[in-house]
Design a protein around this nucleic acid. Structure first.
Lengths: 139, 139
DNA sequence: TTATTAAAAGAGAATAATTCTTATATAGTA
DNA sequence: TACTATATAAGAATTATTCTCTTTTAATAA
């Protein structure tokens, strides 16, 4: 994913392509580790030394709104962001703050089938994510 | 679930049974709607008019630590709490802040089987929760 | 290329949720 | 009943995030 592709993704959504937006979206792709707003600020501080924190939050909101990224909730109380837009799940480490992506089409299928069969009364499912908690061997 | 049972649940964990802890845990059971710390404060304000907010947070931490309740993460940025300790999942409303429990043993089984078969390299699963996003008809 | 303008960014104060610190109070126990 | 570890109250402090207002800029059209 090069800069031109990042610019295009932003433009495709009808958003103005600003250096701040490009830097933030690129940071999320490059970091690839569900960064917080602060992680992103650190990562881009060389190319965007004057960016305001409010801008970071506003850009993140705009990217989420336009489905270029997703929010990842945590028990630690800070929001994290995910640049993978395909349907996937998350491995949460109980020991540390690591969150890894878990992409498996079989799991998606199993759940899709289950929810197709088992209608939930009074509730229309939009999507679902499995939060898988445990420990990484490396942690 | 009466007060005596609530007291016992707390005592069983080796925690001191204080009026604040009893009131908070009872509030979570009674509200039964994944309340925030603030919701709990409102609910108990008649019986515990002088409780400090710090106490509410410390009690909640102690209850989570002792597995009497669970944290429920949300995109809204405030933590919510769940008094159901059996394995279950959550329906999140996209339109409002409603979160309902989704208890279904079949789903637990399907996922347990899937994860038994499909080992995840370098990761030991402790538990998993499905976050089901969508809209309630009533919303 | 330049002018126009709506949208975006900067600055920093404000807010909201949560945590921390310290003094006081109390539940459980001897 | 007294003792002590633990819990609570009070309120300041911290942290993440949002808001307000001013300035700047990307996209567009003349």
């Amino acid at each position: 994913m090069n800069i031109e592709e990042v610019r295009e993704k932003i433009a495709e959504k009808g958003l103005k392509v600003t250096p701040q937006r490009v830097a933030i979206l690129e940071a999320i792709y490059k970091l690839n580790n569900h960064p917080t707003a602060e992680n992103i600020a650190d990562y881009i501080k060389d190319t965007q030394p004057n960016i305001a924190v409010g801008t970071i939050y506003k850009v993140l909101d705009a990217l989420v709104e336009n489905k270029l990224i997703k929010k990842v909730t945590t028990e630690a109380g800070k929001m994290r962001y995910d640049g993978i837009t395909e349907h996937h799940h998350h491995l949460y480490c109980i020991e540390c703050d690591l969150i890894e992506d878990y992409v498996d089409e079989e799991l998606n299928q199993i759940l899709k089938e289950y929810f197709n069969k088992k209608k939930i009364d009074g509730f229309q499912i939009e999507n679902f994510v499995v939060q898988i908690n445990g420990t990484f061997d490396k942690c």
